[in-house]
Amino acid sequence: MNTWLWLAEGPLFWLSLSVFGLGVAWKLTGLLLLGGPRAQPTPRGSPAGGAVYTILRHFVPRRVFLPGAGLHVLAGYAFHLGLFILLGFAAPHVAFFGERLLGVSWPTLPQWGFIVAAEFAFAGLIILWAMRISEPIQKLVSRPADHAATWLTFLVMLSGCLALEEAHVSLRALHMTLVDAWLFWFPFSPLMHTFTFLFSRGFTGATYGRRGVGL
C-alpha cells in the first residue's frame, strides 16, 4: 500500500504535473500562435481597457439574464469558490503544496470551514451536472468529455474528503491517483476553460473595446 502511495505522490504525480504544465503551456502558446486579423480598424476606444473590462464584467451576470441564469450562476460560483478554497486552504493541501513542494506555509481552514466549502463545492457540482443531463440544450450540446470532467472532478473531491482524516493510507493513495489522472488529462479536456476563459473574454473585450463598447 505504501508503494501505491509512494507511486501516486511520487513518480506518477511528477509525471502528471509535467504533462499538466507542458500541456497547458503547449495549448495556450499554440492557441495564441494561431494568429489574428491582418489589419485593425482605427480604434474608437481602448482594446486593452476593453479586455480588462470584459474579463472582470463577465464575472457578474447582467441583471436581465438572471431570471434564467440564476441557479446556474449560483451553482457555478458555489462549485468554483468551494473548490478553490479546498484546494488552497485544506490542511493536507497546505502541507502538501506549501510545506512539501514550496517550503512555505499559510493558514489552513478549520474543520467547519472545510465542511462548508466542501458542501458548497459538492452542491454546486451536482446541480451543474443535473442541469447538464436534464436541460434540453445542455443535453444536446454536451460531449462525453464534459461529463467525464464533471465525474473525475467529483471523484477527486470525494476521495479527498474521505482521505481527510488520514485514517487509511489507501484513501490518500486513491485520492492522489485520481488527482494524477485529473492533472494528466487536464490540458486535453474541457477543464482547460480554467485558463481559456481569460483569452475568450479578453479577445471579445479587446474587439469591442476598440469599438468603444464595454461588452
Binding site: K27, L31, L32, L33, L34, G35, G36, P37, P61, F65, G68, A69, H72, G76, R132, E135, I137, Q138, V141, S142, R143, D146, P190, M192, H193, T196, F197, F199, S200, R201, G202, F203, T207
Partner: peptide, 16 residues
C-alpha cells in the same frame, strides 16, 4: 485564428 480558438476552447456548454 487565436480569437475563435479561444472561444471554442472556453465554451463550457452551459447553454446560458
Amino acid at each position: 485564428g487565436a480569437r475563435i480558438a479561444s472561444y471554442l476552447d472556453a465554451c463550457v456548454r452551459c447553454g446560458l
